[in-house]
Computed example of a mutant assay.
Amino acid sequence: MISAEYCRLMARYNTWQNASLVTAADRLTNEDRWKDRGAFFRSIAATLNHLYWADALILERQKGNERPEATIKHSLTDPTDWEAFKALRSRRNAEIEEWSARLVDADLNGMLVWYPGDGSTRIEKPKTLVAIQLFNHQTHHRGQVHAMLTAAGAEPGPTDIHLLA
């Protein structure tokens, strides 16, 4: 279905696109980043926080952690400080790239098992599907942030993957 090389490409794309959004959001005030813009998570900052925390959860599942929500708490409001968010986002990007750099195709074989936060239901999915979800989820929400930034007058860079250096 997918390969380790695909994951490395998408990890690089993730870093590139997050940098574009952060650079554009740097041009806004903190109030503008938190302004309710009618998106699913309401604001640019809340949507970026969701992505940050969701990346952590999905990546932990990829690493075999069956109960990542026991230690990783999803938050739309944390961090509130923009500089802190940028540092955390940069580290998460690096973590995703490091994970993908260590992958070999065989690592994507088999199933992953995890339990959601309430621990009630055992979920079992193919490792490839969970890897695809990591990258697809990022792209989905970055598109929302891109639209909100554009509407706010900021100018994120292009999103076409063939422009990735």
Rank of each mutant, 00 (worst) to 15 (best):
residue 2 I to K: 03
residue 2 I to G: 04
residue 5 E to L: 11
residue 9 L to D: 11
residue 12 R to W: 04
residue 12 R to N: 01
residue 15 T to Y: 13
residue 15 T to N: 12
residue 18 N to F: 08
residue 19 A to Q: 13
residue 20 S to K: 08
residue 22 V to I: 08
residue 27 R to S: 13
residue 27 R to N: 12
residue 29 T to W: 05
residue 29 T to C: 08
residue 30 N to C: 03
residue 31 E to Q: 07
residue 32 D to R: 14
residue 33 R to N: 03
residue 33 R to H: 01
residue 36 D to E: 05
residue 36 D to K: 00
residue 38 G to R: 02
residue 41 F to A: 02
residue 41 F to K: 00
residue 42 R to V: 10
residue 42 R to N: 05
residue 44 I to F: 02
residue 44 I to S: 04
residue 44 I to V: 10
residue 47 T to N: 08
residue 48 L to G: 10
residue 58 I to P: 00
residue 58 I to R: 02
residue 61 R to I: 02
residue 63 K to G: 09
residue 67 R to C: 15
residue 67 R to E: 15
residue 67 R to N: 14
residue 67 R to D: 14
residue 68 P to A: 12
residue 74 H to I: 15
residue 76 L to F: 02
residue 76 L to Q: 01
residue 77 T to F: 07
residue 77 T to E: 02
residue 77 T to A: 08
residue 80 T to F: 03
residue 80 T to P: 03
residue 83 E to Q: 13
residue 89 R to E: 00
residue 90 S to H: 12
residue 91 R to H: 13
residue 93 N to S: 11
residue 95 E to R: 02
residue 96 I to S: 04
residue 97 E to L: 11
residue 99 W to C: 04
residue 103 L to S: 08
residue 103 L to E: 06
residue 104 V to G: 06
residue 105 D to H: 09
residue 105 D to G: 11
residue 106 A to S: 10
residue 107 D to N: 04
residue 110 G to N: 00
residue 110 G to H: 03
residue 112 L to T: 02
residue 113 V to F: 12
residue 114 W to L: 00
residue 115 Y to R: 00
residue 119 G to P: 10
residue 121 T to D: 12
residue 121 T to F: 04
residue 124 E to C: 11
residue 125 K to S: 09
residue 126 P to H: 08
residue 127 K to V: 07
residue 129 L to M: 12
residue 129 L to K: 11
residue 131 A to N: 10
residue 134 L to S: 06
residue 135 F to M: 04
residue 137 H to A: 04
residue 139 T to A: 13
residue 140 H to P: 14
residue 140 H to F: 10
residue 141 H to D: 03
residue 143 G to I: 01
residue 145 V to Q: 05
residue 147 A to I: 15
residue 147 A to F: 10
residue 149 L to T: 05
residue 151 A to V: 14
residue 152 A to K: 00
residue 155 E to F: 13
residue 156 P to F: 05
residue 156 P to Y: 09
residue 156 P to E: 05
residue 158 P to R: 13
residue 159 T to Q: 11
residue 160 D to W: 02
residue 162 H to A: 13
residue 164 L to W: 11
residue 165 A to Y: 15
residue 165 A to F: 15
